[in-house]
């Protein structure tokens, strides 16, 4: 998922505004967590080799961050990986282990500081 264009929660809000938009402390307009980036948690990053990828989606299903970006065709029949969203990827490495060894389209590399 690309970083959201609209950022509604950057400014801390006062109680009067919250009483209107967040009565009982609810969060409206969910999900809002894409406004919070977790990419800086990484110490290692997965590198994707598009040429080797068979788009089996195993990395996508086991990614806890929903950071495997997909392109879904309009008729829904073609689902392809298009990359890794480093805004959110925490670098856990699950995708690398999920990628079938014979395909080996994902590899961990040190995070560039």
């Amino acid at each position: 998922m690309p970083a959201p264009k609209e950022r509604k929660w950057d400014e801390l809000k006062g109680w009067k505004e919250l009483a209107e938009i967040s009565p009982g402390a609810i969060v409206p307009g969910v999900p809002t967590s894409p406004e919070y980036l977790t990419g800086d948690w990484r110490v290692e990053r997965p590198i994707w080799d598009e040429d080797k990828c068979t788009h089996c989606l195993l990395c996508w299903v086991f990614c806890p961050e929903d950071a495997i970006m997909l392109n879904i065709s309009e008729d829904g029949k073609v689902v392809k990986m298009i990359g890794i969203d480093y805004d959110y990827c925490k670098g856990c490495g699950i995708c690398v282990r999920a990628c079938p060894p014979k395909i080996h389209a994902l590899e961990m590399a040190p995070e560039e500081v």
Partner: peptide, 8 residues
């Protein structure tokens, strides 16, 4: 959605 704070 991404951006949650579960451990890596």
């Amino acid at each position: 959605a991404p951006g949650h704070r579960a451990c890596a």
